[in-house]
Amino acid sequence: LDMDCLPYGWEEAYTADGIKYFINHVTQTTSWIHPVMSVLNLSRSE
């Protein structure tokens, strides 16, 4: 699993305190969880 590779439309950013988060420019949303990890967690719960 390549954690450096973000899906299309996603960008890694940091808060003023240096905390990493992710921006989805396609849906105009943000997430604290890496988008690949959130997809993996969803697929495990099914």
Rank of each mutant, 00 (worst) to 15 (best):
L1G: 08
L1W: 10
L1V: 13
L1K: 15
L1I: 14
D2N: 09
D2G: 10
D2I: 05
D2Q: 09
D2R: 07
D2P: 00
D2V: 07
D2E: 11
D2S: 09
M3F: 12
M3K: 15
M3L: 12
M3P: 13
M3S: 14
M3I: 09
M3G: 12
D4Q: 07
D4E: 11
D4S: 11
D4Y: 02
D4M: 01
D4K: 07
D4C: 10
C5N: 11
C5R: 11
C5F: 12
C5Q: 13
C5W: 08
C5Y: 10
L6P: 07
L6M: 05
L6N: 09
L6S: 03
L6T: 04
L6A: 05
P7L: 05
P7F: 07
P7I: 00
P7T: 08
P7G: 05
Y8I: 12
Y8N: 11
Y8C: 09
Y8T: 12
G9E: 11
G9M: 02
G9Q: 01
G9K: 03
G9D: 07
G9P: 09
W10A: 06
W10N: 07
W10Q: 07
W10D: 06
W10H: 05
E11P: 04
E11K: 08
E11Q: 09
E11S: 09
E11M: 03
E11N: 03
E11L: 04
E11R: 08
E11H: 06
E12S: 07
E12W: 04
E12F: 03
E12G: 03
E12H: 03
E12D: 01
A13D: 00
A13Q: 06
A13L: 04
A13N: 04
A13T: 08
A13K: 08
Y14G: 04
Y14T: 08
Y14V: 09
Y14S: 09
Y14E: 08
Y14K: 01
Y14I: 02
Y14W: 10
Y14F: 06
T15A: 03
T15S: 06
T15V: 02
T15I: 04
T15C: 00
A16K: 14
A16P: 10
A16R: 06
A16L: 06
A16F: 04
A16Y: 07
D17R: 05
D17C: 02
D17E: 10
D17A: 05
D17I: 06
D17P: 02
D17Y: 01
D17W: 02
D17T: 03
D17K: 07
D17V: 06
G18M: 02
G18S: 05
G18N: 02
G18F: 03
G18I: 08
G18K: 09
I19K: 15
I19R: 15
I19C: 15
K20D: 04
K20Q: 01
K20I: 02
Y21E: 00
Y21P: 04
Y21C: 01
Y21W: 06
Y21M: 00
Y21Q: 07
Y21L: 04
F22R: 02
F22G: 04
F22H: 05
F22L: 02
F22P: 01
F22V: 01
F22Y: 14
I23C: 01
I23A: 04
I23P: 09
I23S: 08
I23F: 05
I23W: 03
N24F: 02
N24L: 01
N24V: 04
N24G: 05
N24P: 02
N24R: 02
N24C: 03
H25W: 01
H25D: 00
H25E: 08
H25P: 11
H25L: 01
H25I: 04
H25N: 15
H25R: 14
V26R: 12
V26W: 02
V26S: 12
V26K: 10
T27K: 12
T27W: 11
T27R: 11
T27Y: 15
T27N: 09
Q28S: 10
Q28N: 14
Q28G: 15
T29D: 04
T29Q: 00
T29L: 00
T29F: 06
T29I: 14
T29G: 04
T30M: 01
T30H: 04
T30D: 02
T30P: 02
T30F: 00
T30Q: 06
S31I: 06
S31H: 00
S31E: 05
S31M: 00
S31G: 09
S31T: 14
W32V: 04
W32D: 07
W32S: 06
W32P: 07
W32E: 06
W32F: 07
W32C: 10
I33A: 11
I33P: 01
I33D: 15
I33C: 13
I33F: 07
I33K: 10
I33W: 04
H34N: 12
H34E: 03
H34V: 00
P35E: 06
P35T: 05
P35M: 03
P35Y: 10
P35S: 06
V36T: 15
V36F: 09
V36Y: 11
V36K: 15
V36D: 14
V36L: 13
V36R: 15
V36G: 15
V36N: 15
M37E: 15
M37V: 11
M37L: 12
M37F: 10
M37C: 13
M37S: 15
M37W: 05
M37H: 11
M37G: 13
S38T: 04
S38C: 07
S38M: 06
S38E: 05
S38N: 12
S38Q: 05
V39H: 11
V39K: 11
V39C: 12
V39L: 09
V39I: 07
V39N: 14
V39T: 13
V39A: 12
V39S: 12
V39R: 12
L40I: 03
L40T: 10
L40E: 14
L40D: 09
L40Y: 07
L40N: 13
N41H: 06
N41M: 09
N41W: 11
N41A: 10
N41T: 11
L42T: 13
L42N: 15
L42I: 10
L42K: 14
L42Y: 02
L42V: 13
L42S: 14
L42P: 10
S43M: 04
S43R: 11
S43N: 14
S43C: 08
S43D: 14
R44I: 00
R44F: 01
R44C: 13
R44M: 10
R44P: 13
R44Q: 12
R44V: 11
R44A: 12
S45V: 12
S45A: 11
S45D: 12
S45H: 09
S45F: 04
S45E: 13
E46S: 07
E46K: 09
E46I: 11
E46D: 11
E46A: 08
E46R: 12
E46Q: 13
